[in-house]
Design a binder for these strands. Structure first.
Lengths: 146, 146
DNA sequence: AAAGATTGACCTATCAATCTTG
DNA sequence: CAAGATTGATAGGTCAATCTTT
C-alpha cells in the first residue's frame, strides 16, 4: 500500500485533530528544553503570571485557562521545587496567596528567552497567531470570565 | 488593576503557548460530544485509521503520531469497550493485529460526522490548516518515519 | 541484538466529591 | 449556601524498563 489516500493522508484530517497533533508535537521540544531548567511548561505559565505580583490560585487558574484543580497541582509542584511559596491570606483564610521566590523569578527569566526559540519557523506566523487567538476567545467565554 | 498589559495580555503570549491553549480549549467541546457515543478522541483516531483494515499497534502509533505505549493503552480501552479486537499474528507472534468490530465501525461512522461540526468557524481556515500541517511535518520527521 | 508490546512512574488536565471558610 | 482549595478517579501523553519473539 502506497498511502495515496485514506486515513493516512493527514491533509484530509479534520482541523481539530491537526490542531491537537501540532500542539503536542511542538510541546516535545519545549518540554525537553525546559527540563534543563528543572521546569515544566505548566509551571512556566504560572511563573509568568506571577510577574504581576502574588495571586490566589483561582486567579492564576482563570488567567491560565485551566481549572482550579489543575492549578492546585501545578503550584504544589512549583512549591516542592522551591519556585513559589504559599501563604494563607489573613483577610480571607480560604485563599492561598502564591508568591514567586527568587529562584522562581530566575527560572522564569531563563525560560522566557527560550520560549520564543523553540517554535518552528512559519512564513505567516501573524495569521496563525490571529487564528489561535480567535479560537481561544470563542471557546473560553462560557468557561472563564476575563 | 485593569489588565491593560503584562502576562494577562494573551496577544503577547508566545505562539507555542497559544497553540497548546487553543488545542486544549477546542478539545473540551470535542470530548463532550464524543462522550455521548462512548468514545474518546484518541480512540476515534485509532478507529479512523482502521478504515484501511487491520493494523499492528506499532503501525497505528506511527500513523497517529503517538508512542507505541500510548497506542497500547488506547487500544486496551477500545478493546475493553468492545470497539476493537486483538489477535496475535500467527506469522510473527510479537505483533498484535487490531481489528475494528461492527460496533467500532458504527462508532467511527457516528463520530466522523461530528468531527467537522465541533471546530469553531474561522474566516481563513485554509491558512490555519496549512500552518498546522507545516508544524506537524517539520516537527515529526525525526520522531516518526512516514 | 532488534522489534513489538506492556507496565510503572510521572505530568497535564478534566470531572466529581469533599473540606474549610466566608 | 457560595467560594477557594484539595483529593480521588480517569484519560492522554511521555520516558524508562522489561518481557517475549524474531
Amino acid at each position: 500500500m502506497t498511502d495515496i489516500s485514506g486515513p493516512d493522508r493527514m491533509d484530509k484530517w479534520p482541523t481539530g485533530r491537526l490542531l491537537s497533533t501540532a500542539a503536542r508535537l511542538v510541546e516535545h521540544a519545549w518540554i525537553e528544553a525546559l527540563a534543563h531548567l528543572g521546569l515544566t511548561h505548566a509551571g512556566l505559565v504560572a511563573l509568568h503570571l506571577l510577574d504581576a505580583g502574588p495571586h490566589s490560585q483561582t486567579d492564576l487558574a482563570r488567567r491560565a485557562r485551566v481549572e482550579t484543580q489543575t492549578m492546585s497541582r501545578t503550584i504544589e509542584r512549583l512549591e516542592r521545587e522551591g519556585f513559589v511559596e504559599r501563604q494563607t491570606d489573613a483577610a480571607d483564610r480560604r485563599r492561598q496567596v502564591v508568591t514567586r521566590t527568587a529562584s522562581g523569578r530566575a527560572a522564569w527569566e531563563a525560560g522566557k528567552s527560550l520560549e520564543a526559540e523553540v517554535f518552528p519557523d512559519l512564513r505567516d506566523q501573524g495569521t496563525l497567531r490571529d487564528a489561535l487567538l480567535e479560537i481561544i476567545h470563542s471557546t473560553s467565554e462560557s468557561r472563564w470570565s476575563g
